[in-house]
């Protein structure tokens, strides 16, 4: 009897830690997801969602080329922004793990995450002050005589959106890559080079395969939130830098919840597809016996 009781208690203790997350994710995220799925198959009549089943919300997106075009443009921007983010984050994380003392590493990592202490909106707004016609870059260009008048191509276009996205998501990439590089045993590279491998070959055949889970994590942390971005393109993209998230937001702003839900789910399905593609790489990071 006693042992049954203690077994139940031990079971409760075992799963106790899961409870808050399960309530939060199951109750909030799960409920919201179910509601979104239902909404996407229902209709909005007179500003109210009514449970009249339809596939029209999905059909609509495949019949109007604006959405496909905007989605493709969004993917292109996200791909470029992710590649640039990693291109900047990787050398930085490498430098941090290889050439900086442990004491200074922590300080520098705090500097990397420092922007998180300011609001997201504020960080994006700050770029209006940097890229704007009276912004820091234009003032500099005029001061050094490169431009006679303010350059207008810095803001309200796709490159501006990509630049701000790189800035916003750089810390996520650095943290993921830093963890991977810090755990890597650098003597393996030395051994490979002792055995005749060039630096490039050692990096490609020894380093990269072992930090691949870190790279994949960085790509996921960076690219997936970017896919749903709508504030950054709204503030710095102008009419040329629109992303799919902006069109989804317009549906919700005008009470077209069913269309908005269908669009959001189509994006979510795409994200899940990316995750499936990356699953193998992530599985390598956590072997079954770990």
């Amino acid at each position: 009897m006693r042992s049954t009781k203690s077994s139940v208690r031990s079971r409760i203790a075992e799963y106790g830690g899961l409870l808050p997350a399960a309530v939060l994710l199951g109750g909030c995220f799960g409920f919201a997801l179910v509601l979104t799925v239902l909404y996407s198959f229902w209709q909005v009549v007179d500003f109210e969602v009514v449970p009249d089943w339809t596939l029209e919300n999905y059909r609509y997106f495949f019949t109007v080329d604006t959405y496909v075009r905007t989605f493709v443009a969004t993917l292109a921007m996200v791909t470029v922004a992710t590649a640039l983010t990693l291109a900047v984050a990787m050398p930085f994380a490498y430098w941090l793990t290889r050439y900086v003392s442990r004491r200074w590493r922590r300080r520098l990592l705090i500097v990397v995450v420092l922007p998180f202490f300011a609001s997201y909106l504020l960080r994006v707004y700050a770029w209006l002050g940097i890229l704007g016609q009276n912004g820091a870059i234009n003032r500099f260009l005029q001061a050094v005589g490169v431009a006679d008048e303010p350059v207008s191509i810095l803001l309200f276009n796709r490159p501006a959106v990509v630049l701000v996205l790189v800035y916003l998501y750089f810390p996520f990439a650095v943290l993921a890559l830093y963890v991977a590089l810090e755990q890597f045993d650098w003597s393996q590279v030395t051994a490979a080079m002792d055995l005749g491998a060039t630096g490039r070959v050692a990096a490609r055949r020894v380093l990269l395969p072992q930090i691949r889970p870190g790279i994949v994590t960085a790509v996921i942390f960076v690219s997936i939130p970017m896919l749903g971005e709508y504030v950054t393109p709204l503030l710095v993209g102008g009419t040329k830098g629109v992303m799919i998230g902006n069109l989804v937001a317009n549906f919700f702003d005008t009470g077209e919840y069913s269309r908005g839900a269908a669009a959001a789910l189509l994006i979510a399905v795409f994200v899940v597809a990316i995750m499936v593609v990356f699953r193998r790489s992530l599985e390598l990071a956590v072997p079954d016996d770990a």
Binding site: V64, T66, V72, A73, T239, V242, L247, N250
Partner: peptide, 19 residues
């Protein structure tokens, strides 16, 4: 005023201001 055909308004807006 609240448009009686809101979805037509939103669709038109998105179709213009999408990429």
């Amino acid at each position: 005023a609240p448009p009686p055909n809101q979805s037509a308004y939103t669709d038109a807006f998105n179709e213009v201001f999408g990429a």
